[in-house]
């Protein structure tokens, strides 16, 4: 556990050294704040104390931001050779992966902390469905961990950061959009159900409505777990004896 935290701390500091953390916080808050309070279907237009627009924006903002966080995590280590140093230390592949995962999740968590004033402001303006907001936040975190899993896996298969981010965006798109389209295009039958279940949007929407369904939680956690297992497989590929 100690070593996971050591790795996480180093990665976390790197976010702040490389400005990416500041950019993430500022742009994420600016973007979501703009659409929550000032533009489009904002709070005042709806005449309703709700931060639903915030959750809509977070869905797409994290879609882009998380691959930007994860793209260098393993690709750069493989390119510069530091992965060799890391792996010849007494740490396991899993400790490295969890450390990196945790660092990303912590940065997302901190960004979300800064968005809490939106919620407090809305609560000051009128009656807010408190349960829905907190479950929504949980939903964002779960969705983020799925995106982080996808991002880490993409980063593990290449030593080129551009390839890593493009692959991550492509996979994200599959879950965020394409499975939804496919579910609509397939009329009925088990195929439609499958695509519907695979679509990230469906599970996210149900969470931001304030519904805690184990099905949704299992969905997010299994994407995360599956991607991390694949990441570990890519890392330990060096050990395969042919």
């Amino acid at each position: 556990m100690n070593k996971i935290l050591t790795i996480a701390k180093r990665e976390f500091n790197t976010f702040f050294d490389s400005l990416i953390a500041y950019i993430m916080v500022v742009v994420f808050l600016g973007f979501s704040g703009f659409f929550t309070w000032l533009f489009g279907a904002d709070v005042f237009l709806r005449g309703q104390a709700s931060i639903a627009p915030f959750f809509d924006i977070a869905y797409w903002a994290l879609f882009f931001f998380i691959p930007a966080l994860t793209m260098r995590m393993l690709a750069e280590e493989q390119k510069s050779g530091t992965i060799e140093l890391l792996l010849t230390n007494p740490v396991t592949d899993w400790q490295i992966i969890f450390g990196k995962f945790l660092a990303c999740l912590a940065l997302v968590g901190i960004t979300l902390l800064f968005s809490l004033p939106y919620y407090f402001t809305a609560a000051w303006l009128g009656p807010v469905d408190h349960g829905a907001v907190w479950v929504g936040y949980l939903g964002i975190l779960l969705m983020s961990s799925a995106y982080i899993g996808i991002g880490l896996f993409s980063s593990s298969i290449t030593n080129n950061q551009i390839v890593a981010i493009l692959l991550a965006l492509m996979l994200n798109l599959l879950f965020a959009l394409l499975f939804g389209f496919l579910a609509q295009a397939t009329t009925g039958g088990w195929m439609a159900n499958l695509f519907d279940y695979m679509s990230l949007r469906v599970h996210y929407d149900s969470m931001i409505r304030g519904v805690i369904d184990t099905k949704d939680i299992i969905y997010f956690l299994s994407i995360t777990g599956f991607c991390l297992v694949l990441t570990e497989a890519m890392l330990s590929k060096r050990n395969v004896v042919d």
Partner: peptide, 22 residues
Amino acid sequence: PEHNPLYLEMPVIEYLQFAASI
């Protein structure tokens, strides 16, 4: 290792502390 890979963005002391801890 060959080519001496290091985390270039880290200060020396911080890097050595990281190495020790890991």
